[in-house]
């Protein structure tokens, strides 16, 4: 690879990482009461409308829950307390996030396990393919061929 490519790649990497750092700095966790209430409403499902959260739903029960979440937040209750209270009133399935404990935690673990296992399987397959191959084409060979083909 030519020298100026390294420089260009370095610039791109630098700009990208600066941009990403700037992006994550600008993004702050919910701080005000309104933001907290918003977060709770957005992650709570309206019990009668199948899939919509209480923030978006027009159903009266969603309006009722919204009003109560505002009330409880301003009373200084914690997020966990409010969620638990709503789950008691309307059933566990008002929380859009499945629990992280008990059998419900499987939904978080299984996909990660499947991802790791299938990636592992692919890596294993690549190994096998490599071993099973007759003559190996090294990276250097490829470099030579492609640099010859490339009109510089």
């Amino acid at each position: 690879m030519k020298q100026r490519h390294w420089i260009s790649w370095f610039c791109i990497a630098l700009v990208s990482s600066l941009a990403l750092v700037a992006a994550s700095v600008a993004d702050d966790p919910p701080a005000t009461e309104a933001e907290r209430a918003y977060e709770i409403k957005a992650t709570m499902l309206c019990p009668v409308c199948d899939g919509q959260n209480v923030l978006e739903s027009n159903a009266p029960v969603a309006a009722a829950i919204r009003a109560q979440v505002d009330e409880l937040v301003s009373e200084g209750r914690s997020d966990a307390e409010i969620r638990a209270w709503m789950a008691r009133q309307y059933g566990k399935d008002v929380n859009a996030n499945p629990p992280r404990t008990g059998i419900g935690s499987l939904i978080w673990i299984v996909p990660v396990f499947v991802a790791v296992a299938s990636t592992g399987f692919l890596v294993f397959a690549f190994r096998k393919w490599r071993v099973g191959r007759g003559s190996e084409l090294s990276d250097d060979d490829v470099t030579i061929v492609s640099s010859l083909r490339e009109p510089t």
Partner: peptide
Amino acid sequence: DGDAAWAVAFGVLRP
């Protein structure tokens, strides 16, 4: 039921 406190306390879904 001003701020819907009772509706939530009773867990009312739909009238």
